[in-house]
Amino acid sequence: MDFFNVLILVLDSTVRLSVPLLLACLAGLYSERSGIFDIGLEGKMLAGAFASGAAAAVSGSAWVGLAAAILVSVFLALVHGFASITSRGNQIVSGVAINFVAAGATIILGQAWFSQGGRTPLLTGDGRFGALNLPFAAELRDVPIIGQIYSELLSGHSLLVYFAFFMVPFTWWVLFRTRFGLRLRAVGENPAAVDTAGISVAWLRYRAVICTGILTGVAGTYLALAQNAGFVKDMTAGKGFIALAALIFAKWRPVPAMFACLLFGFLDALSIRLQGSPLPLIGKVPVQFMQALPYILTVILLAGFIGKAIPPRAGGVPYVKER
């Protein structure tokens, strides 16, 4: 049963590592489906992580931290929205700008306010989102196989993990079963048609980027208050870009997005687990190769060798009303 125990451990850390990816990926889904490309997921997540770490440290409450994170990420999302919707600027440029502002500001403000080398103070107790134990987790622990899966893999995660996985069917429902979702998808494909129907393109897109802001805020909170005990500088470490890769990998659909994030999380968990020890048949794989694998896979996908990823048609193009 040794192999099984290791598998459970790896899958357990897969879940933990894929949650920030999943939240950021779903965040990007709303924005990009509405026709606003968002390279700035990374920056919004980082700013959210800092805001939650700082607010939770000052107030001692994880919920205050979550609220602060959402507030800050939504603000940055609105800056991106203003630049790309109202000001009709280049969406890629705006996203890049937000990443830099967030990367610099979190370190400068963190150092100025807490003087701990860019960290926020270590959090304990109510300042964090602790593990939730599902009912009967302790009792079922000794049941072979099912007990392990239930009590190790499914139980014992923080509230935000369950929220992230709940957001997958919820996002599917919003996008494909509500009026708002239909319009959101339409505005990403053909904004002129939506405008002709008498619906405001700008307001729809603003609502989409607000959704993005909320979810990146939660993703940042997860990093700072659930996975770690406070904010550490550059703690997103490229996760926003892996989420972007997962979004493309999933061809902008919520359920495949979850599987893409789990796959990338699994690769991450595996590379931590292996740490350079040799694999059967393949031999020793450099850790760096495992780290680069999500990016390599995405490039291969983009090249059209694994299906074809077609972005929303109006993505990246500012909407100008015909005059």
Binding site: V79, G89, N90, S94, V96, A97, I98, N99, F100, G104
Partner: peptide, 25 residues
């Protein structure tokens, strides 16, 4: 000491924002 080199990263981001994305502002 409160203003480390990361201030440059902020300025860089703001320049990209205002000279790039918001050039029409």
């Amino acid at each position: 000491p409160a203003i480390s080199r990361d201030m440059i990263v902020i300025i860089q981001g703001l320049v990209i924002l205002f000279a790039g994305a918001l050039e029409n502002l």
